[in-house]
Design a protein around this nucleic acid. Sequence first.
DNA 1: CGGAAGATTGAGCGTAGTCAAACCGAGTGG
DNA 2: CCACTCGGTTTGACTACGCTCAATCTTCCG
Lengths: 215, 215
Amino acid sequence: MTGSDMDRLDGLQFSRRQVKSGQPLFHAGDKFHSIYAVRSGTFKSSLMLKDGREQVSGFHMAGELMGLDGLAHGAHASTAIALEDAEICSIPYAPLAELAVGSADMQMILGKLMSREIVREHGLMMLLGSMSAEERLAAFLLNISQRMKARGYSPTEFHLRMSRAEIGSYLGLKLETVSRAFSAFQAQGLLQVDKRHIRIVDLEGLVRAFEARVH
Amino acid sequence: MTGSDMDRLDGLQFSRRQVKSGQPLFHAGDKFHSIYAVRSGTFKSSLMLKDGREQVSGFHMAGELMGLDGLAHGAHASTAIALEDAEICSIPYAPLAELAVGSADMQMILGKLMSREIVREHGLMMLLGSMSAEERLAAFLLNISQRMKARGYSPTEFHLRMSRAEIGSYLGLKLETVSRAFSAFQAQGLLQVDKRHIRIVDLEGLVRAFEARVH
DNA sequence: CGGAAGATTGAGCGTAGTCAAACCGAGTGG
DNA sequence: CCACTCGGTTTGACTACGCTCAATCTTCCG
């Protein structure tokens, strides 16, 4: 989302709402009527597989949108759950669409937002399709790092809001494998890890670990 | 894409073009100005990784759209290549967007199309993130089967237009693994396989193989 | 006919999954 | 205050699935 896109949406003053840590914002299957902008806090979106296991499909930080996948079939395809106390901004889709009728700009914004979501998932597919465990974790950490930086926080030291199991689900790995990859990075002097507190010691080394998809 | 959506687009009569087998329709990085509807033939979309390997991100059959990912950054994110002689319909985006300004219906159609793409990639992520080789191939074949059926072809007997390597890239597997999975299905009496010609003998068995993501 | 590209199959190996144990910190209750 | 539980994390040992390397076969096409 570019700054100007965000400003536009910001100007519209939609209803806000608190979501407590662990609480759902919407469930897979819920009727779609709004998209949501995260104002503060972090969310995960996920869906339950038939066998009861959870598949995490994304993490959402302040300033990011959720719920666009619901437009296709009129119902949300995933469940959004707050990973810490959060505040969201509810954006009813109908008036938004109405607003876009007659405004080429607004329409462009909407289109770009959706397209960006496609590109994001695209990137994740690459990751899941062709990278090793350590490459996946490196990619994940670099992504988080960038997003922290974009929000004015330190890109090299941050607190993860999600569990190893959630990271694993997102990256297509088991939690033990994620844990081992963290340990390996620490042993290589790339990271300092203390549970969910991460300090990136050697950013370039991490980038190299990410690009190690030679062979 | 629902029938009515397709009809709407169909009525607009955009320019058509032939694409020979193996030829690109657009390249990753090309300036985005149009989206494309496949009229006949089959395409793959893929992108080149830095190390020269190819990552296939989708296959597109008659009636399906390509190129929506380009909207986000004004340039196509992937390359589209014809897997057989094909005909496509070029849909310049600018006039389309213009048409949508003023038409809530047209806008809804566009939105749904994009959202559908998000949902599609979502599904692929699930697949790549949590399924075994045979489950992946089963999912792939069932998907092809459904799409053949939707086009009025036999859902149980068809000719694959893509190589084992391309299937493997798409599913996050090596070509040998794909080949072995085909052989295994044949041995289990689920399929009859002769190179790219596939006959599904036991559809329900295939569904079971797909749902076998217990353990 | 010869060469190239795709597909199949086999053997051995390595990465990540499975199962299990131990640890840690936070919260709860005796 | 300490014992206890519980969820999350780490680490180890073993296993297995899919990858790598390689040989063979088929089909297609010059």
